[in-house]
Write a protein that binds this DNA or RNA. Structure first.
Lengths: 158, 158
DNA sequence: GCTTAAACTTTCAGACTTGAAATAACCGCG
DNA sequence: CGCGGTTATTTCAAGTCTGAAAGTTTAAGC
């Protein structure tokens, strides 16, 4: 395990006695997430010749078979509009995604998986789930429930 | 809160009954992390005219006043060597970091914060901690301790 | 000494990402 | 109808990031 990089980084007044511990928790959260992301990225690259952002977009579109607008897509993935445009551009060039105009609103386009995109994603999804399952094999049902609660409390602040 | 994009994405045999729940937990973890990263990025951009990767590098170097080799730096931040080179290049151009050769090993360079880099980082660090503290204000001491344990168990697999 | 493997850094192409600006289309209201 | 504000998407410059390749230096074995 690597060291936390940005700790003890403030000669602060320590108004909140939990402040330092929250900072430590954030750093740990970030490290665990990055480590898992790196493993999944490696897995997708070696076994499916694709990338994490492509997988994420395809997963979002798979989930909603009727498609998503570009804005809804970028909101779902927590990335910028420009980013969604770029990734979908490449997926569309590769025949995995298609943009179609939307009736009644000529501003909007709907991105959907093509049949091939569907096949390709479904071929990856089960293996991806196994990979994630392996990464977090150390967590039992109680851990998962506790984590769920904690993450919910954490994101409640926004 | 946005929807989980890649759920139910496998018509799998469900060998491990926890598999789906681990996948859900991973998606939630990713969403919380990205949301917090986006907020911190925004904060650093607006209030300190800098970026998350720059902050991360400076934090790592601040923590080790004697500096880090480029390899150690990239390992600490969980990024590639090429990435570390690029970010340090820009920080060095801006006078916040300096590379110095290492005695006895002419392959290695040591990256350290300059005096100005030190000042600039310390000016950001306290505010950054307050920002993180605010983001996770919903977590009390027990939550933080539970989270610590869970993340430790999760990263034990690696 | 010589040769081979390993470690360290940089370079490079291509992909990803942001934030701002530019277009275009919708909507409410006077 | 026309105006002004909002929403949707793309474009763009600059930065971030990866993985592979290249170059340099060190270490280890013979």
């Amino acid at each position: 395990m690597t060291e936390s990089p940005l700790l003890d980084a403030a000669p602060e007044p320590a108004q909140d006695p939990l402040s330092k511990r929250r900072l430590k928790a954030w750093i740990r959260l970030l490290n665990v997430t990055r480590q898992a992301e790196n493993q999944l990225r490696e897995y997708l690259r070696v076994n499916h010749d694709t990338t994490l952002p492509r997988f994420d977009v395809m997963a979002a579109l798979w989930r909603r078979r009727d498609g998503l607008s570009m804005s809804d897509l970028s909101r779902a993935l927590l990335v910028s509009n420009g980013n969604a445009t770029a990734v979908v551009d490449r997926l569309e060039r590769d025949g995995l995604v298609i943009r179609t105009p939307v009736a009644n609103d000529r501003r909007t386009v709907r991105a959907t998986l093509t049949d091939e995109g569907m096949r390709v994603f479904e071929a990856m999804a089960a293996a991806h789930e196994r990979e994630v399952n392996g990464l977090f094999a150390g967590l039992d049902a109680a851990d998962l429930e506790a984590l769920r609660t904690i993450l919910q409390k954490a994101s409640a602040q926004g």
